[in-house]
């Protein structure tokens, strides 16, 4: 009752998924996916997450007083350099 001998299990497929994705190959063409809805859904979700990461993260403004802090840190550093050189 084990079906076709070459069919691999979900666990086996998933244990290789990281390498498969990392290899840049077209994972969606993998034979296991042709009749496994579970792993199809997994792959689609991982793709959705990667796409969302690329699109959803927006840049935010740092607090206004940060520049003041940086400016004084720079000044301090330059004063120390002056001391060293004179």
């Amino acid at each position: 009752m084990s079906g076709e001998p070459k069919q691999i299990s979900c666990a086996e497929f998933q244990s290789h998924l990281s390498e498969l994705i990392g290899s840049g190959a077209d994972v969606s063409a993998h034979p296991h996916l042709q009749n496994c809805a579970l792993c199809q859904a997994l792959l689609a979700d991982l793709q959705t997450i990667a796409d969302a990461a690329r699109q959803l993260f927006t840049n935010v403004e740092p607090p206004d007083d940060l520049w003041k802090q940086i400016e004084s840190a720079i000044e301090k550093e330059e004063n120390e350099e002056d001391k060293d050189t004179h």
Binding site: A11, L38, A41, L42, A44, F57
Partner: peptide
């Protein structure tokens, strides 16, 4: 195993993710 970690298809993310 797939049953535990990789839930049934109805748990599939909807294709849009909230930021």
């Amino acid at each position: 195993g797939p049953g535990r970690s990789f839930g049934a298809p109805d748990l599939r993310l909807s294709g849009s993710i909230d930021r």
